[in-house]
Nucleic acid binder design. Structure first.
Length: 481
RNA sequence: CGGGGCGUAGCGCAGUCCGGUUAGCGCGCCUGCUUCGGGAGCAGGAAGUCGGAGGUUCAAAUCCUCUCGCCCCGACCA
């Protein structure tokens, strides 16, 4: 048996790349830093899209589309924004064989061009709130890339809203953070921590940035979604104004929020094991796979008959099911293959099962024989699999939560901080009253950064582990992607 | 951008130091037969501009120069 996937312990980065290759999620392209997303990987992304898009609609947002090209001058209108993005812009200077009068930036994000548009759309308080989302690709010239986690071109959605007041805009910002957390937890089965970004880590041009942070299988943090309160920064830069009820001109308060194909990376790394992917049933492109087993032609006919009828009844019940009737592969190979691809539930049907009107069911979240149950009656198979999918979904969330909690450490001193980070890794939860320079020093020395200031912080008062100041503010430090 | 490693068949690699037949191996792929309850066996077969360009040489996967890409670490960064 040739090992195709490096174990996580041996080399986590290799493991990640091996899984992406073997499960056929994506591959490198001729263009540096860009990837080809293969059908299986794209179906995963489509699951993410459907999950969050449904929630956007439910909270009153509409989809629209804005151009890929942004006039250079737009990017330069918001000071922080320019500084933040200048180094990673891709710029088009020639079109139709001629030098352009004004270079066009390939959007790294669309605050500016949408701000420009909103200025025209919004006249009165009656036009507010304006709640729009777009699904798009964006480009950021990254020096170092990793499939799904950081690519030069990536797919995402960016929500952009405009409101009459700061309160409403902040409420929107937090609502969308909640939407992301709800998706991450309930659909992707990834426990995330909601928090605010520090000055140093926040979005260029934002007043406040919020994030959902997830723990990957190596204890590193991954920012899996962000939501920004932009204040009136972009409103001032782009003249997004409205007349209020008293006839006074006011600047809008805007927000923006996004999740990207990075979420696919989060799913891979939050759940995967040494066998490969483990996909949460809600998002799994294939939720259940049926592997038929036979020796003789007669058995083949009987087994495939039962397998097909099981497939049909599962499909009728809305389960994404696949019957793997490929003739040239042995059952053992198929077991391993589908496990590697992360299919949550496998149904094995052989001659012995057919005789008993039963099947064998194996769950992906429990490796090997332990996860197998024998003699499941065909009669109630649909309900059984439905329940099993829910069980696996819950189990993945539970396992990820346990892993995160087991790898979250509370420390009180910098000495302890360094020691724990070195020996255990994971999240370090601390009282924190430091500033930007302190963060820089800590990163320089330990490579850990403030992932977020968690919104849920029951710790109360304490002393900052670094400065010793009294504070009730809590921070989570970790090494991050 | 700095340091290190690596580009040889779809994937993983040997061969490179020390130049010399038709460039090999495992997996995968194709054909046939036997198989099939945890990565099947046998037989036959297809597939490689040795990342690219230039140079040295009678002769280059092998030596030299340049270049592109990938991986790891650092710097930087939503």
């Amino acid at each position: 048996m040739a090992e195709k996937i490096t174990s996580r312990q041996e080399d986590y980065s290799r493991w990640y790349l091996d899984v992406i290759r073997e499960a056929e999620l994506a591959e490198n392209s001729p263009v540096r830093g860009c990837m080809v997303i293969r059908p299986y990987g794209f179906q995963l992304w489509e699951g993410v899209k459907e999950g969050v898009d449904r929630r956007f609609k439910a909270t009153g947002h509409q989809n629209a589309y804005f151009p890929l090209f942004i006039p250079m001058s737009f990017i330069q209108k918001e000071t922080q924004h320019v500084e933040g993005f200048a180094p990673e812009l891709a710029v088009v200077t020639i079109g139709g064989g001629k030098e352009l009068e004004e270079p066009l930036v390939i959007r790294p994000t669309s605050e500016t061009i949408i701000g420009h548009t909103y200025a025209r759309w919004i006249q009165s308080y009656r036009d507010l709130p304006l709640l729009i989302n777009q699904w798009a690709n964006v480009v950021r010239w990254e020096p170092r890339t990793r499939p799904f986690l950081r690519t030069m071109e990536f797919l995402w959605q960016e929500g952009h809203t405009a409101h009459a007041t700061a309160e409403e805009a902040i409420e929107e910002t937090l609502q969308m953070l909640e939407v992301y957390a709800d998706f991450a937890i309930n659909d992707a089965a990834i426990p995330v921590i909601k928090g605010r970004k520090t000055e140093r880590e926040k979005f260029a041009g934002a007043i406040d940035s919020y994030t959902i942070e997830a723990m990957m299988g190596n204890g590193w943090a991954l920012q899996s979604g962000t939501s920004h309160y932009l204040g009136t920064n972009f409103a001032h830069a782009f003249d997004i104004k409205y007349l209020d009820q008293s006839g006074t001109e006011q600047y809008c308060h805007t927000t923006s929020w996004g999740v990207s194909t990075r979420m696919v990376g989060a799913i891979i790394m939050a759940h995967g094991d040494d066998q490969g992917l483990r996909l949460p049933p809600v998002l799994a492109p294939i939720q259940a796979v049926i592997v038929p087993i036979w020796r003789k032609d007669k058995e083949r006919t009987d087994v495939l008959g039962v397998a097909e009828s099981v497939r049909a009844s599962l499909a009728d019940a809305g389960i994404r099911v696949r019957l793997d009737d490929r003739d040239e592969l042995t059952p053992g190979f198929k077991f391993n293959d589908w496990e590697m691809r992360g299919v949550p539930v496998r149904i094995e049907i052989g001659p012995r099962d057919v005789k008993q009107d039963a099947v064998v069911v194996a769950r992906r979240d429990r490796p090997g024989k332990e996860g197998k149950q024998f003699g499941i009656p065909v009669s109630g198979i649909t309900e059984y699999i439905k329940d099993m999918l829910e069980t696996v979904q819950a189990a993945l969330l539970e396992q990820a939560t346990e892993f995160r909690d087991a790898n979250t450490h509370h420390v009180d001193s910098y000495g302890q901080f360094k020691e724990v980070l070195e020996e255990e890794g994971g999240f370090l939860r601390v009282h924190w009253a430091g500033g930007v320079e302190d963060e820089e020093c800590i990163q320089e020395e330990t490579k850990a950064t403030v992932r977020c200031l968690p919104l849920d912080a029951p710790e109360g008062d304490g002393e900052c582990f670094y400065t010793g100041q009294k504070t009730d503010q809590v921070a989570i430090f970790a090494r991050a992607y």
